[in-house]
């Protein structure tokens, strides 16, 4: 298949960027989207042009590194799929594909399609953990956890931290990411003691990182490669309210 790509090119964080049109002829429909970009890059280098920079690593949908907005949708047209798991058979010959980075003030562009998502790490650092040190923990079966609770925690914990929720949100809000981490820990007894304090500190950090607020549009849920539910946002809203009113 023959495609026309419109790719965001930006040399570094300081210089402005623009969309560049790049032809991508004879693409095999069994390729993954990133393999298509690999091929395009090989051809660019052959013409002595610098390759397109984009983040990727595991290429099996779990590391959360890949981060493209494809034709206006974070991770492209398939639901529950990361960019690396998107295959070219999803497109048609002659298609024009617009490829942009995840855009948010909290995700400054490093180069081309590569953005800095360390703001998400800093939110976790502010309280997204159970305060337990290595050693001295009780036997793993000492506290039974209802299967349902463990399952809900796992639903939330499936988050890969890619930031597609931020990219898709009209407000560039990180609430789905933050609420998924909060809910993962809030639903199991080990994480329960710090539930309110965690909600308070993570939300404070999220606000400092200049993400927008959630206005419940649910676009985040729709693009989330792990299909994490916005119900967790409701839960975080509840925990935050309780933290606010119950705080000392």
């Amino acid at each position: 298949m023959n495609l026309v790509l419109k790719v965001w090119r930006q040399r570094n964080a300081e210089e402005p960027g623009q969309l560049e049109t790049i032809e991508a002829p004879s693409i095999n429909p069994d390729m993954s989207f990133l393999e298509m970009l690999d091929v395009v890059n090989e051809r660019l280098v052959a013409e002595n042009k610098e390759p397109i920079a984009y983040d990727h690593d595991c290429r099996e949908g779990i590391c959360g590194a890949c981060s493209l907005v494809i034709n206006g949708v974070a991770h492209g047209p398939d639901r529950g799929t990361t960019t690396c798991q998107l295959h070219m058979r999803r497109f048609h010959s002659g298609d024009e594909i617009v490829i942009e980075p995840f855009r948010a003030r909290a995700f400054p562009v490093i180069r081309d399609l590569v953005v800095d998502r360390s703001s998400l790490d800093r939110i976790i650092q502010s309280g997204g953990y159970v305060s337990v040190s290595t050693g001295g923990t009780p036997d793993a079966n000492e506290i039974p956890i209802p299967k349902r609770a463990a399952d809900v925690a796992m639903d939330a914990a499936a988050c890969i931290g890619c930031g597609a929720c931020v990219a898709a949100c009209k407000n560039a809000s990180a609430m789905l990411f933050v609420s998924a981490k909060a809910a993962h820990l809030a639903h199991i007894p080990q994480g329960a003691p710090e539930r309110l304090e965690r909600a308070r500190s993570m939300v404070a950090r999220m606000d400092e990182e200049t993400f927008g607020a959630c206005t419940n549009t649910s676009d985040c849920e729709a693009v989330c490669p792990k299909e994490i539910s916005i119900e967790f946002i409701g839960e975080l809203n509840r925990d935050f309210r309780q933290a606010l009113l119950a705080g000392r």
């Binding site: 965001w8 948010a104 003030r105 560039a172």
Partner: peptide, 20 residues
């Protein structure tokens, strides 16, 4: 205003998947 500030460079192409 915060939402506007949170994304200083807009998308050239943006589609809503689920938002009404």
């Amino acid at each position: 205003a915060e939402a506007k500030e949170a994304r200083p460079v807009p998308y050239a192409m943006k589609r809503s998947v689920a938002a009404s």
